[in-house]
Design a binder for these strands. Structure first.
Lengths: 308, 308
DNA sequence: CAGCATCCATAGGAGGTCCCTAGTGCTGAG
DNA sequence: CTCAGCACTAGGGACCTCCTATGGATGCTG
């Protein structure tokens, strides 16, 4: 099997025209280089140098093979430099999960932060829908993610709360927004709720379930959709009301449901944003960077929560 | 140190998404591949795969490095294929020494022969002047050559006679060509002789020295030049006469000295063409090919000599 | 939820490779 | 002819490579 080391010795010998000089250049003893050349000649089945008393003379085969050997060594060198670049975040891809609502809070700004600091990198913010992110995390395809989660779910996952955000009731009917919405009124409302696929672990849903459960009632969702944007649009069309984080309401209502408004719940409820990753994972520098930046972004908008 | 083998294991693992599958593909045991990947990760200083229960997942670093690894392996593959091509004479350079007079007999035709059989090769026919060829042979820069030499000279060289060619006396003065030239007449002639630098071992000169020595006379060379073409031109200008192989006379006189003619020596003298190489050399396939083809060419023109 | 299959990591050992030092033989130059 | 320079050989130590056997973790399934 042809090896990089053999080609290195070959080129040094070719340039120096001498095994001794090549060995000196490479920092080896002369017999070592001699052995490498012999092994290379044997593995290729061709003679590369003629041994002639004083020094060695490249054959025409050596002349032909030299540019190939140089290309191999150049490719190896590029590989190593690429690895160093990736380590220093000069290039490469940083992939991070940020699903659903969290994405609304930090998406574009977060990417801008990364690019400002490391102009060469590619950034992937995974999470068009939440099931995908959850599955990727579980399977290990995604190292870490920023999610809005119910407290301490997910066996085998480490959940680190970062910030919390008030949940507000949104509606196109001003009468629904006159006073804060109680559990009783919530249980009677006709709701559209996003995150269908992830409903069992979705933070907002879990919070609402707890709120209603304390009053002995079950939540009524009339419409189930995947995107929060779709849910807000439906609210704007007057087909149902919904409960979303306040920041999402402020960001989406003017654009998707300009005739709708929002009001607090009573008692006020909060969604928790958290960093989630496998409990056993050692986080890479890229993931740590994204976690740090995403945390800063979220905390600038929502109310910081500091884990004990 | 990064090795080709590590990159092979890396790519197999990346494609298969599993160490076990990669090991099977490569024909190794699973721990071997595992060890190679770990060594590669250590030497690059980056994590390439996340080990996650079932299988391994490439990190973004692995995504980035994969094309580099593929380029290295492609370059290695090209190198090996190039070596095979050279072995089969599909490509590469064939270098052969053919100096002075021999070149006039077989130069262009010999190259045509090689190209007809191996269209991909480059051919170098070394030997603008004879010193160069002799030096290259001695130093080992040239593996073998076809020369016109005196019998069995050159210590450390193997000389294989291939053909012989009559030496003729050429002159622009018809009176000089009326009868065959004897040693006596030769010793009185005003001669221009080529191959100045190589005069001690040149075949024609040696032959003439022997011819004159038997009659107790010394050769008289009025003019010394390097090229046989120059010598013939000088003969055409009537400045001197010369002695050259018959084939050279027939080829050069019409072009360079149309007013000159030739006549035999008495007794007739012959130049010997021979293959010369270092006594210790093992001839490469390329050299053997050139020797075979050059021998055929020379023998088609000059009188064959078969070594005992 | 218990059992099974799958996959990776570790341990230990046989064989090979890499690299060294020391010495030999050959070649070319003075 | 002698000397210096260069490649080869021999032998041994350190390391690497690859194997088998085994253990631990995970995910699927009845």
């Amino acid at each position: 099997m042809l090896s990089v080391h053999q080609l290195t010795c070959f080129l040094a010998t070719y340039e120096q025209g001498s095994l001794t000089a090549a060995a000196e250049q490479l920092g080896y003893a002369q017999p070592s280089v001699s052995e490498q050349i012999r092994a290379l000649e044997k593995s290729l089945g061709v003679q590369l140098f003629r041994r002639v008393g004083r020094g060695v003379i490249p054959t025409t085969v050596a002349d032909t093979l030299r540019p190939y050997a140089e290309r191999v060594l150049a490719a190896v060198d590029e590989t190593q430099r690429a690895a160093q670049s990736v380590k220093a975040f000069e290039t490469g891809t940083i992939r991070f999960g940020m699903f659903g609502i969290a994405r609304l809070y930090a998406g574009a700004g977060l990417i801008a932060d990364v690019l400002a600091r490391y102009p060469g990198v590619r950034v992937e913010l995974i999470g068009q829908n939440s099931t995908e992110v959850h599955e990727d995390l579980r399977r290990g395809r995604l190292e870490a993610a920023m999610l809005a989660v119910a407290n301490a779910d997910s066996s085998g996952m480490t959940v680190t709360p970062v910030a919390r955000e008030e949940l507000v009731y949104i509606s196109a009917d001003p009468a629904h927004l006159a006073t804060p919405v109680t559990a009783h009124r919530l249980s009677l409302a006709s709701l559209v709720m996003p995150e269908t696929s992830y409903r069992a672990v979705d933070s907002t849903r879990t919070t609402l379930r707890q709120m209603l459960h304390e009053t002995g009632r079950n939540p009524q969702t009339r419409i189930e959709v995947e995107d929060i944007e779709t849910a807000v649009e439906l609210v704007g069309m007057g087909l149902a009301d919904s409960v979303v984080p306040k920041g999402a309401a402020e960001q989406l209502l003017p654009r998707l449901a300009p005739n709708a408004g929002w009001v607090s719940l009573r008692p006020r409820q909060f969604d928790t944003f958290a960093i989630v990753h496998r409990a056993d994972a050692v986080l890479s520098p890229a993931a740590q960077l994204m976690i740090e930046l995403a945390t800063q972004r979220i905390r600038a908008i929502a109310e910081p929560v500091h884990p004990r």
